[in-house]
């Protein structure tokens, strides 16, 4: 299996959240994303900071991750961004 690049990891995390009805707990997200806990926390902080993912809490205090509009837009554009990178050799 080839190593995933940053962009692919971001895409995978966002896709997992979307696939789970746009609401997922941190533990399954960590498991599905195939990252170490340290890397996972780093990526999630970044995605929240960039406004791609939102962290919400239910009445029982459980944390969930959901995609923002920006996150959905990223997923829509991902394939085109990939194609562009290939086209321009970036």
């Amino acid at each position: 299996m080839t190593r995933r690049d940053r962009l692919e990891i971001i895409h995978d995390i966002l896709s997992i959240i979307r696939k789970h009805g746009n609401s997922i707990l941190p533990t399954p997200l960590l498991r599905y994303s195939n990252l170490s806990t340290q890397n996972f926390n780093r990526y999630m902080s970044e995605l929240i900071e960039k406004g791609l993912v939102r962290e919400i809490q239910d009445e029982n205090g459980r944390r969930y991750y959901t995609l923002t509009d920006k996150g959905f837009k990223f997923l829509e554009k991902y394939q085109k961004i990939r194609e562009f990178i290939e086209e321009f050799g970036l």
Binding site: R6, L7, I10, E46, K50, L52, K70, F74, I81, I85, F88, L90
Partner: peptide, 8 residues
């Protein structure tokens, strides 16, 4: 800004 991809 969204991707943090250095090439961009």
């Amino acid at each position: 800004k969204i991707t943090d991809y250095k090439g961009f």
